[in-house]
């Protein structure tokens, strides 16, 4: 798994609900042998924005985030950071992150879990985009003054 794939894995799993991940994966953390490096814990990330999206950075406010880190018996370490306070969600992400690093297992994680979830996310986004597009307007300027 290269860096880009790993970013893809996190982008997909953090945008999916725990329920959806479990449905695709059909395994549970109990099925694996791993050692917890950092037990799931909830904290915050300060969301930083830029003035007008390009200028000086400023603190917008914090976001609850839950994180977890673990190591498989083979030595692969996985991490999970996800918005919200769901510890199982962070644990599932960390475990899948670790499993995808095992040589020969990455394809399975991607084909069985990541790709279907990505498809689901894309379908949802597409539906939302279409509903948004239905609200597109054309404002016609009325002539002001005489005539």
């Amino acid at each position: 798994m290269n860096i880009q794939q790993r970013q893809d894995l996190h982008a997909t799993l953090t945008r999916s609900s725990l329920g959806d991940i479990q449905r695709c994966w059909q395994k549970t953390p109990q099925d694996y042998d791993y050692q917890i490096l950092r037990a799931p814990e909830t904290g915050m990330v300060m969301a930083v924005a830029r003035t007008e999206n390009s200028g000086e950075p400023f603190n917008l406010g914090e976001v609850t985030v839950t994180r977890c880190a673990l190591r498989l018996s083979g030595g692969e370490t996985g991490i999970g950071y996800v918005t919200g306070r769901n510890e199982q969600h962070a644990l599932h992400i960390a475990l899948l992150d670790a499993l995808a690093q095992i040589k020969g297992q990455s394809e399975q994680v991607f084909s069985q879990v990541i790709e279907p979830l990505k498809q689901r996310i894309n379908d949802n986004h597409k539906k939302q985009q279409q509903e948004t597009a239905a609200t597109r307007v054309d404002f016609l300027t009325m002539v002001r003054g005489e005539d």
């Binding site: 915050m44 990330v45 930083v48 830029r50 999206n53 603190n59 914090e62 985030v65 939302q128």
Partner: peptide
């Protein structure tokens, strides 16, 4: 709550727009 870190600056150009 503990603050883990700062986020990278948000990019509103890449927003999935609802309005």
């Amino acid at each position: 709550l503990e603050r883990f870190c700062d986020s990278k600056p948000l990019d509103t150009d890449a927003m999935r727009v609802e309005r």
